[in-house]
Amino acid sequence: MSSLKLPLALTQGDPAGIGPDIALAAWAKRAELDVPPFLFIGDPEVLTSRANILGMPVSVVTCEAEEAFSAFSSALPVLAVPVGFDVQAGQPHVGAAHSTVKAIEIAVSLTMENKTAAVVTNPIAKSVLYEAGFGFPGHTEFLADLALKHTGQPARPVMMIAGPKLRVVPVTIHIPLKDVASALTQDLIIDTCRIVANDLKSKFGMDAPRLAVAGLNPHAGEDGAIGLEDRDIIHPATMRLRKDGIDAFGPLPADTMFHDAARKRYDVAVCMYHDQGLIPAKALGFDDSVNVTLGLPFIRTSPDHGTAFGIAGQGIANPSSLIASLTMAAQIAERQAS
Rank of each mutant, 00 (worst) to 15 (best):
R335G: 02
M206V: 01
L79W: 12
A329D: 11
I323L: 10
V171F: 01
L216I: 03
S202C: 02
H259W: 11
V101T: 14
L188P: 01
V46W: 03
S338W: 03
N198G: 00
I104A: 14
H235T: 03
G17V: 02
T256D: 05
R231A: 14
H174I: 05
G133T: 11
A225M: 14
S2H: 14
I226A: 02
I233A: 02
I279F: 04
A281K: 10
N291I: 06
T121S: 15
L110N: 05
K178M: 03
T140H: 05
P157T: 05
L211G: 09
V180D: 09
A329Q: 11
G205I: 01
G227V: 04
F249M: 10
T11F: 04
G133F: 06
L200R: 09
M239C: 05
P170K: 03
L10I: 04
D21N: 09
Q88I: 14
V58H: 03
T301M: 08
P218W: 11
S59T: 15
L184A: 07
A51Y: 05
M56R: 14
F298S: 09
N217T: 10
R263H: 04
I53P: 00
D255Q: 08
R194G: 01
P297C: 07
A248I: 09
K102H: 12
L8I: 15
D179K: 13
A26V: 05
D223C: 02
T192L: 05
A183T: 13
Q336N: 09
D187I: 00
N291R: 07
A132D: 13
F134L: 08
G138H: 03
E141R: 05
V128T: 15
F72M: 10
P123Q: 10
G95N: 13
N114P: 00
E32A: 15
G55E: 10
I226E: 04
V270G: 07
S70F: 01
L322T: 12
D247L: 13
S320L: 04
A96I: 01
P37T: 04
C193W: 01
G55N: 11
F258P: 07
I189S: 03
Q88G: 00
F136H: 15
V169D: 05
A197M: 03
G55V: 08
N217V: 07
C193I: 02
A324R: 13
T62D: 01
P218S: 08
I22T: 06
S73G: 14
P123T: 06
S59F: 00
L39C: 08
A281T: 11
E32C: 02
V158F: 05
D288R: 14
G133N: 11
P209S: 09
K29Y: 03
T238W: 01
F40H: 15
K203I: 00
L296V: 10
I311N: 09
Y273R: 05
A25I: 00
F298L: 09
G95Y: 01
T301C: 13
A225C: 01
G90K: 06
K203H: 13
K282P: 09
P36D: 08
K29V: 00
Q88K: 15
Y266K: 11
R50K: 04
G163R: 12
R300T: 08
R263E: 02
T307V: 14
I104L: 15
G315D: 09
A308S: 13
Y266P: 09
P137S: 11
P170H: 03
G295D: 07
A197C: 07
